[in-house]
Design a protein around this nucleic acid. Structure first.
Length: 544
RNA sequence: GCGCUCGUAGCUCAAUGGAUAGAGCGCUAGCCUUCGGAGCUAGGCGUUGCGAGUUCGACUCUCGCCGAGCGCGCCA
């Protein structure tokens, strides 16, 4: 498809240069106006310039438009721009010919989803680390949301020309794992009839009994209870994620990192760079020099590491593997940890923008209009497994993504189960199935020949085509915000435009040429909906 | 106490500093001889928590206040 935004930007930059209007002081932004009566593209560049030039914005806009019109014949857009107008306070609005949209539609029809791809990434290696839950219990809904968001994000990055990998950082050593091992051991004794005292900070969940029971039933010799239990739970987690449709490229073991000697080498390097000092019998990382509000202990007075220490090494290791952009999805309880990790990245001279940390806000599960209470301490919380069993993969994935990732999410199980317009997943899938149904029928009646797209003149047809053309722009927003939720907003609006069209205009009719054109429009719509749903990991049912 | 995030319609949420702040749900009234009614159309719904500031322009940025959540460990 034509990168309109880019071409317009080039023209405007050239015009600013020519008119000597401070071209290097201004960033030209082009937007698709929210309201279509303001054209197909708009820029506020004249208003931005107004202050510096001390001239009214409309006056600047007019002279700019004159200049743009002179440049236009040299641009690939020359045949597609119908009008350029100054409107409102000084907006420059671009109005496109319908032929532009027919051209774009033709691209989607002939190239399928390849037409929707824009190579923003140019193969840049991105590592998206998410979930990374300790293997000490089943995954919660908090992890579930991270899984859905992270997976969709990786799909979007790959679609846009990045080389994105999904990684799970496995916290398979340390205190929590030791406690897990002891928890299993204690339950084992209990099951064998011993009287035990089960400490409050140990894992209370029933799954600990399950592990212990299996050890008894299968008469398993366990040498290392921590390792055994962690592996056992890890298998459960893998299976859960697999059923959720999330596949990781790598499972990075903290234990293996520890054995590799990387942690020591990293500390050594930090010391060389002057960010290490000793105090109170501990070794500290001088993170305050790099934007943190406190210095951080990296070696405790008992000579063991804090959680941060291997994590610093881990992130350097990511860079060493050739990743140029690291994206971490964390729960809100970790936001206080952002600055110290960023400080560590800065200590090694990595650019600040190369590590992005996205806080995935929690989801509150509602059942029968009431929040389901959660308490990890008592081992009672809603697991990914339960949500998956109750509402299915499609609804679960969609619902976890459909709000801005940084916003708290209310997840209503009853709505997610509904097969009605209340449930956005069904609304979108229904549009897809409806199109499939019509295309099936059309196949039987075999309408052939190259469609004349210019026959699509109805208001609803034009609206639908324009919406299809906005797909790449929408993905660009996802990229800039590192958030897939805009895909859900877009798909809902697209499904709505399709349903409106469908309701007013008959596709399979007497007029063969019109039928062919409308079938082509439907096929393009199907491609776009399918592409969007696929990015979210939601299925595309031909029939419902 | 300090820090981070958030406060928009009855509810759940949108709006990369832009034009009359928009959707869905719910509510009311309509639309099936015809490709899938799991759909469509119309209607009402607002002091964007409060107050100031910056700006040609503020839901958006800055400051103060009020309210909610989270974090402040030589835990992970």
């Amino acid at each position: 498809m034509i990168n309109t935004e880019n071409y317009l930007q080039v023209i405007i930059q050239d015009c600013l240069q020519e008119l000597n209007l401070l071209p290097d002081k201004i960033q030209v932004y082009l937007d698709i106006p929210q309201d279509s009566r303001f054209g197909d593209f708009t820029t506020n560049v004249a208003m931005q310039l107004s202050r510096q030039l001390k001239k009214p914005p409309r006056e600047i806009a007019s002279s700019l438009i004159d200049s743009i019109k002179q440049h236009l014949p040299k641009s690939p857009l020359k045949d597609y721009i119908k009008e350029i107008k100054v409107e409102g306070a000084g907006f420059i609005n671009f109005y496109f010919n319908d032929s532009f949209f027919y051209h774009e539609l033709e691209e989607i029809i002939s190239k399928g989803n390849n037409a929707l791809k824009v190579d923003f990434g140019k193969g840049k290696k991105v590592l998206i680390e998410f979930v990374s839950a300790n293997p000490t219990g089943p995954l919660s809904v908090a992890h579930a949301r991270q899984a859905a968001v992270g997976d969709a994000l990786a799909e979007i990055f790959n679609f846009l020309g990045y080389s994105a990998a999904r990684e799970y950082y496995l916290n398979d050593e340390g205190n929590q794992i030791n406690i897990l091992g002891r928890s299993v051991q204690l339950r084992l004794k209990e099951l064998k009839g011993e009287r035990i005292e089960f400490p409050e900070d140990h894992y209370q969940g029933d799954y600990i009994y399950d592990i212990a029971r299996e050890i008894i039933d299968k008469k398993i010799e366990v040498k290392d209870f921590s390792e055994y239990a962690a592996n056992y739970i890890l298998e459960i987690i893998r299976k859960e994620l697999d059923d959720f449709g999330v596949k990781f490229d790598t499972w990075f073991s903290q234990k293996a990192l520890g054995k590799s000697g990387e942690v020591e080498r990293t500390l050594e390097e930090l010391k060389k760079r002057g960010y290490i000092y000793e105090e109170d019998g501990a070794v500290w990382f001088k993170s305050t020099a790099l934007g943190d509000d406190k210095d951080r202990v990296v070696i405790k007075s008992d000579k063991s590491y804090t959680y941060l220490t291997p994590d610093i090494a881990y992130h350097q290791e990511k860079y060493r593997r050739g990743f140029a952009w690291l994206i971490n999805l964390w729960g809100p309880d970790h936001h206080g940890y952002i600055n110290r990790l960023k400080a560590s990245v800065a200590a090694f001279g990595k650019p600040a923008g190369s590590l992005s940390i996205i806080i995935v806000q929690l989801a509150t599960i509602f059942r029968e209009g009431k929040p389901v209470q959660m308490s990890t301490r008592r081992g009672q919380y809603i697991t990914l497994r339960e949500v998956l069993e109750e509402v299915g993969r499609d609804a679960a994935r969609y619902f976890f993504i459909m709000r801005r990732t940084s916003s708290h999410l209310d997840f209503d199980l009853d709505v997610a189960k509904k097969q009605s317009s209340e449930n956005p997943v069904y609304y979108i899938q229904y549009a897809y199935a409806r199109i499939s149904s019509i295309l099936r029928e059309a196949k039987e009646n075999a309408v052939s020949g190259k469609p004349e797209l210019s026959l699509l003149k109805e208001k609803e047809e034009i609206e639908l085509i324009k919406k299809l053309c906005q797909f790449p722009d929408m993905l660009n927003i996802c990229l800039n915000t590192q958030d897939p939720y805009m895909v859900t907003v877009y798909l809902q609006a697209l499904a709505e435009d399709f349903h409106k069209f469908y309701d007013l205009h008959r596709v399979l009719g007497e007029d063969k040429k019109l039928t062919a054109a409308r079938l082509a429009l439907l096929s393009a719509t199907q491609t776009v909906i399918a592409t969007g749903l696929k990015l979210l990991g939601v299925s595309r049912p031909e029939k419902m």
